[in-house]
């Protein structure tokens, strides 16, 4: 017998279930318990960068919006810097901008929204430039292990065309599933997205 390696095994995932709000967004479950709550608003008045709303839905295989889904996003600031010590790129961290938020979908419409800023282009550890993007993690009843995907921005055509991750997607038509569409509504910038769990336009999900 060779020497044993003795790595531990990752704990198995289980669905977040239909009542995920109790633990992660108690106000949506219908009660108030914590002094401080996490939310879908990532910005403070001091945050630098262009204010945007990310707005979208997650659709099941029948095209029906999930109305009990929870999304988390993780993103860099406007300078392209993540608020985490493992990001050693040059941009400055903003203490007040954590770069993370969570949102439950509306119980009627399935709409999910985040109030944030458009992130800057990211410099990877190898010096590659990556197109601005938001990392997305999706959990819900019926989702056995959290789904990872990304949102890119429709007005970043050149950067998207050069992005190393988008270019890993073999079929160009599938790259479009990750592009959020920019529009303006009452003076506010809105990026709209649809995440399809199944079907001909199934969103690209990553094994990260």
């Amino acid at each position: 017998m060779p020497q044993p390696l003795n790595y531990l095994k990752e704990t198995a995932s289980q669905t977040a279930g239909p009542y995920v709000h109790i633990g992660l967004i108690p106000a949506m479950a219908g009660f108030d318990i914590f002094e401080k709550n996490f939310s879908n608003v990532l910005v403070t008045p001091n945050t630098k960068g262009e204010r945007i709303t990310l707005e979208g839905r997650v659709l099941d295989g029948s095209g029906t919006p999930l109305r009990d889904v929870l999304l988390e996003i993780w993103q860099a600031n406007a300078a392209g810097r993540y608020n985490h010590p493992a990001d050693r790129s040059a941009g400055a961290v903003e203490e007040e901008f954590r770069g993370w938020g969570r949102a439950g979908s509306d119980f009627e419409s399935g709409l999910v929204t985040f109030e944030t800023i458009k992130p800057g282009a990211i410099t990877d550890k190898t010096g590659r430039k990556c197109a601005p993007h938001v990392n997305v993690w999706i959990v819900a009843r019926g989702i056995n292990i959290g789904l990872n995907t990304r949102l890119y921005f429709s007005d970043e055509e050149a950067a998207n065309a050069a992005d190393p991750v988008l270019n890993l997607i073999e079929q160009p038509v599938r790259r479009k599933t990750l592009i959020a569409t920019r529009s303006e509504r009452a003076g506010k910038v809105v990026y709209s997205f649809t995440i399809n769990l199944q079907g001909p336009e199934e969103t690209v999900f990553f094994d990260v």
Binding site: T15, G61, N144, L197, T203, F205, D207
Partner: peptide, 14 residues
């Protein structure tokens, strides 16, 4: 509940 909520394409390894 997993039947209509499960992706059917391969995950893209990053």
């Amino acid at each position: 509940s997993s039947v209509l909520r499960s992706p059917r394409q391969s995950l893209l390894s990053l």
